[in-house]
C-alpha cells in the first residue's frame, strides 16, 4: 500500500517567517511548509493548473535590510578608522561586506520565480542563482502540465464517445402507478 513514490526536489524558499520546499511528484507538485517540527503539505495537481508564470524580482525587503545593515557597519568601520583603530575598522568592514555582497549579488542576478496557479492552490519556485535550471524547470513543468491535460482530455473524450455509442440515451421513465402493499407472507418453498 505504501509504495515509495518518486519525489524530485525542485526549489526552496527561506523567508523571514517561513520555510518551504517544493517537490515534483508524477501527478503534480507538493509544497512542504515547515512549521516548527511539523510539515504541512499542500499540492497542486497538473490536471488542475490554470496558469504558469515566470518572472524576476529583486525582493525590496531583502535589499533594504541588507543595505541598511551594510551601511551601518560601513559607518562604524569609518568611525573606527577615524579614531585610529584599524583592526576594529577591518573587522567591521568585513561584517559590512557580509551584508553588502549578498545585496550586490541580488542586484546583479535577481531572483527567478515560477508560479503555478491551480484551481485550489498555488506553488512558487524561487531560483536565486541557477537561471538555466529555472528555465529548464519552467519548460519541463509547462510540457508536463500540457501532456497531462491533453491525456485527460483525450480520456474524457473517449469515455464520452464510448458512453454515447454503448449506452442508449435513456428517456426519463414515466411515473409508475403505486404498486400493491408489501405482504408479510413468506414465499412458498
Amino acid at each position: 500500500m505504501n509504495t515509495p513514490r518518486q519525489r524530485t526536489y525542485l526549489s526552496r524558499l527561506q523567508s523571514w517567517g517561513s520555510r518551504r520546499k517544493v517537490y515534483q511528484v508524477p501527478n503534480g507538485l507538493e509544497i512542504d511548509e515547515f512549521d516548527q517540527y511539523d510539515i504541512v503539505r499542500k499540492r497542486v495537481f497538473f490536471d488542475d493548473v490554470l496558469f504558469v508564470t515566470y518572472h524576476r524580482y529583486y525582493g525590496k525587503a531583502f535589499l533594504w535590510l541588507m543595505g541598511i545593515f551594510g551601511a551601518l557597519f560601513t559607518l562604524f568601520a569609518y568611525l573606527a578608522w577615524s579614531n585610529r583603530a584599524p583592526e576594529g575598522a577591518t573587522i567591521l568592514l568585513v561584517i559590512a561586506l557580509l551584508f553588502l555582497i549578498p545585496m550586490a549579488l541580488r542586484l546583479l542576478f535577481m531572483v527567478d520565480c515560477i508560479t503555478i496557479y491551480g484551481k485550489r492552490s498555488k506553488a512558487q519556485l524561487h531560483f536565486a542563482f541557477r537561471k538555466a535550471r529555472a528555465r529548464q524547470v519552467y519548460d519541463d513543468l509547462v510540457e508536463k502540465i500540457r501532456e497531462t491535460q491533453e491525456r485527460l482530455g483525450a480520456e474524457i473524450a473517449s469515455e464520452q464517445s464510448q458512453q454515447e455509442a454503448g449506452v442508449p440515451v435513456v428517456q426519463p421513465a414515466p411515473e409508475l402507478p403505486p404498486g400493491p402493499p408489501p405482504t408479510l407472507s413468506t414465499p412458498s418453498q
Binding site: 493548473v49 490554470l50 496558469f51 504558469v52 484551481k119 519552467y138 474524457i156
Partner: peptide, 11 residues
C-alpha cells in the same frame, strides 16, 4: 512576466 494559460478539462 511570461505566462502559459491552460484550460484544464473537467471530468
Amino acid at each position: 512576466y511570461e505566462g502559459v494559460a491552460f484550460t484544464p478539462p473537467v471530468r
